[in-house]
Simulated assay, not measured.
Amino acid sequence: MSQHVYDVIGVGNAIVDVIASCDDAFLTEQNIEKGAMTLIDEARARELYAAMAPGKEVSGGSAANTLAGIASFGGRGAYIGKVSGDELGEIFRHDLNAAGVDYKTAPLVDGPLTARCLINVTPDAQRSMSTFLGASVFFSEEDIDADKIAAARITYLEGYLFDRDEAKEAFVKAAEIAKAANRLTSLTLSDSFCVDRHRAAFRQLVRNHVDILFANEAELVSLYEADSFDAALDAVKAETRIAAITRSEKGAVLIDRGDTLAIPAEPVSQIVDTTGAGDLFAAGMLTGLAKGLDLETAGRLGAIAAAEIISHIGARPNINLKDLAESKGIDLSG
C-alpha cells in the first residue's frame, strides 16, 4: 500500500477528555498547577474526578484532536494510539472513526484502563490538565502500521507519548518508514514540562527525523534552553526544515528553510476555552501542507482552526472547518 491514501496519520496518546469549569480557588484547593499538564496516577484520577464539577466527556488526546480537525477540513486521516478494551476505549474508538478518521489499533489486553485527561477550565479560559495515561503509554513498535505510515503524506508524532523508551523507538521507526516512502515526518513538542523531561532525546529526534516541528513559544525556548525567543528561533532554523511556533494572541511564526514568516491570530469574539488551540493550529497547517498549499495559506488555516476551537468548550470543532475556510476565501477542493 505504497500509494497515497492519507493526508496525515497521527501517532499519539489515546485519551478521553473530561472538561469542567472551575475557579482559581479550586485549583489551589486541589494543588493543580494552572495552565500546565500534570501526570497523575489512577488513584488521584478517581479522587479528582469525584471533586470536579459536572463535566463534558469527549474523546481527546492531542494528536487525535488534530486528526479530527483535519477530517473537518475535508482531509483524509488515520490514527495510531492505544486504548484498553473498556467502555471509555470503545467510546474513543467510535468517536474518532465517526469523525472520519481511520482508527484500528488493537486494544491493550490485561493492562490499565483507558487514559483520561481531567481538564479544569478557569474563567480566563486557561486549561489545567491532570492526566492519567493508563493504557495509552503501553505503545511500542508493534503498534506502528508500516503500510499506513507509508501511505500518508505526513506522519504526525505527539510529544506527550514520548515518556517510555518503547514509544521513543516507535517514533524513530515511524519516521524511518516515512522517509523510506518519501513522506514527511512532523512532531509536536506538546508541553514545556514534557520538553524538560526529554530535551536531549527531542533534540536528537528533531535533528535526525523531523521535517515539520510544532511548538509554542515556551516549548521552543525550553527545547534550546535559550535566553530569548529570537535565540530559540535561530537554533531551530539550523535543525529542521519547517517550524511552526504559536504565540497565543500574537499569532504564529513559521520557519521555512531559514526564512521567517509571521501569521497573525484570527479574530475571535470571545475566548471561552484554550483547550486544543495548538492541536487545531496543527490540523490547519498540516491540511494545507498535505494539499500542496503555500506555507502562508497553511498557516492561515491553522489560525482559523485555532480561533474556532477557543470560541467554545472542547477540543474538537463545532462547525465544519472546510466550510469555514472556504468562507474566508481558501479553496480546499483540491
Rank of each mutant, 00 (worst) to 15 (best):
I70W: 12
R127C: 06
V236A: 02
E308K: 00
C117V: 14
Y103L: 13
M285T: 11
R247I: 00
L133A: 08
A277L: 03
T287Y: 04
I149G: 06
F139K: 11
G329Y: 03
T297G: 04
G288T: 06
T274H: 03
R241V: 08
I80W: 04
L324E: 09
I310L: 00
G89K: 05
H209Y: 15
T188L: 04
R199E: 00
V16Q: 07
P264K: 00
P54I: 04
Y156T: 12
Y160W: 11
C194M: 10
H198N: 07
A146P: 09
A231T: 00
V236F: 02
V206H: 02
F138R: 13
K82S: 06
K322C: 06
A290F: 14
S2P: 15
A262R: 13
S21D: 15
G35Y: 05
V83C: 14
S311K: 04
H209T: 07
I9D: 09
E219G: 05
L324T: 00
A180S: 13
I91K: 15
T287E: 05
G55P: 10
A178W: 15
N208W: 03
L332S: 02
V121T: 04
M129R: 02
A238N: 09
L133N: 12
F281N: 08
K168G: 01
V253F: 00
N31K: 15
A232S: 03
F138D: 14
T185E: 05
A152C: 15
L293F: 11
I19M: 08
D227P: 02
F139C: 11
D230K: 01
H312Q: 03
N208K: 15
A200M: 01
I19S: 10
S130A: 12
A135E: 09
A298I: 03
L324F: 01
F73R: 04
G302Q: 01
Y49A: 12
T122R: 02
A277W: 00
G258P: 04
A150K: 14
S248Y: 00
L108P: 06
A277K: 01
I319V: 14
K34P: 04
T297K: 12
K328D: 00
H94Y: 13
A14D: 14
L321F: 05
E249S: 15
R164G: 03
L184S: 06
D102L: 01
D23H: 05
E225S: 07
R316S: 06
D211Y: 05
I177S: 08
I242S: 03
L324P: 01
S136A: 15
L254T: 06
S186W: 03
L108Y: 09
P317A: 09
K148E: 14
D279W: 09
S192N: 08
I91P: 12
I212Q: 09
T274C: 01
A178T: 03
L295I: 14
A303G: 04
A51S: 13
I32V: 12
A174P: 05
G334C: 13
D23L: 07
A45Q: 12
A298E: 02
K328A: 03
